[in-house]
Design a protein around this nucleic acid. Structure first.
Length: 256
DNA sequence: GCGACAG
DNA sequence: ATCTTGTCGC
């Protein structure tokens, strides 16, 4: 078992990590948020990237999580890990981690490789308490994690240019940001993420620091692993994998 | 009080 | 997230 797998198992076993209700969950987030660290990430130096995603079944009774490791250079899948589970926490915007991390940690536990960085389908610092799933996961297993979300949760956003590679900062709090002149935002307000166009004339994705990466490196990595489609390849693979897996699971078990 | 609200 | 056919575009 790898060190990361062991830490994932330990995080799952600690009851302190899994509050019963939203109220306690918020307290837990505030406590752990202090542990988030930002450090430089050399996107070009990454060799193994792991995409994570969760899919849901009908009636809120089952979900599937996938961890897919890709060779960052060729973008070929080198390992996959799948797991099915039962939701034990309701869906509450801002408290994602308490619902999705249990199965995700189990999927990570099943990996035999050690990815250089993980990509989570959600936010990191671009969160009301600066502690979205990406940061939460990173802190629990002490790994590098990048957050890549498909829609906005928190902060001010400005649409980037239409071409692939264009981006604008996501800003929290009061800012003097006006239209596309975000230079002012860099000085006064807090930059919590990046609205990034991974594909020309297609909706952008929202990148933020999860844990032990910096925003520059995170955005560079997302661009590197999204050469063709809007959604980063690691996430696309994880999405497809757990989606199909869950479908087959229902088809075989739910004999009506 | 009135919106907004990751997957 | 999920329920769902065709359709416009490269």
């Amino acid at each position: 078992m790898t060190e990361i797998a062991e830490r994932a198992a330990a995080a799952l076993d600690d009851p302190e990590n899994w509050p019963e209700d939203p109220k306690e969950a918020v307290v837990r987030q505030r406590l752990l948020a202090d542990r988030v660290r930002t450090e430089p990430l050399d996107a070009e130096g990454v060799e193994l990237v792991c995409g994570l995603d969760v899919s849901y079944g009908v009636g809120d009774t089952e979900l599937a999580a996938a961890a897919v490791v890709l060779d960052a250079r060729t973008l070929e899948v080198v390992e996959t890990s799948l797991v099915t589970d039962t939701p034990s926490f309701p869906y509450v915007s801002g408290l994602f981690a308490f619902r999705e991390l249990p199965p995700v940690l189990k999927a990570i536990e099943g990996l035999s490789l050690t990815p250089d960085v993980f990509i989570s389908d959600g936010f990191g610092l671009a969160h009301p308490r600066r502690f979205g799933v990406a940061s939460h996961l990173g802190v629990l297993i002490d790994a590098r994690v990048v957050g890549s979300a498909k829609s906005v949760l928190y902060g001010r956003n400005t649409p980037p240019g239409e071409e692939r590679g264009s981006w604008t900062p996501m800003v929290a709090g009061r800012s003097e940001i006006v239209d596309d002149t975000f230079a002012l935002a860099e000085e006064g307000a807090e930059v919590i993420g990046r609205t990034l166009r991974t594909r020309s004339r297609t909706r952008p994705v929202y990148v933020s620091v999860g844990h032990r990466v910096d925003l520059e490196g995170a955005a560079d990595l997302i661009m590197r692993v999204s050469p063709k489609y809007r959604i980063p390849e690691p996430i696309r693979h994880a999405d497809r994998l757990c989606g199909l897996y869950r479908k087959e699971h229902e088809a075989g078990g739910a004999a009506k």
